[in-house]
Amino acid sequence: MCTMIVQQVKIEGSGKKETGWFTLKEANVSYDHPFNAPFEHALNIDFVNEAQGPGARVAVELSAEAALALVEAIQAVLKTAEERDQIV
């Protein structure tokens, strides 16, 4: 817990872990030590369902640059979908 930079957002969707799909309820976004990515700090996103315990988690650990690129890609895709009237 060396930066303590963390936010939680409520989400709807599904995530897939080793044992199969589960319902996602929250996403925890932090900029702190990753477990695996080869950086001192990373942009970590844990897609979780807190009610199902610590193991209900799909994790990604990204460099700051990769995270920003991901944000841009998500926004661009959603913008296109909106322009095509696909978001209902």
């Binding site: 817990m1 303590m4 963390v6 979780v48 807190e50 315990g53 610590p54 193991g55 988690r57």
Partner: peptide, 20 residues
Amino acid sequence: RAGHGTPEDVAAKIRAEGGV
């Protein structure tokens, strides 16, 4: 007190809670 799972999953839960 965060419950049990792999050390990483439990630590991720604590990270989301802002530590101990």
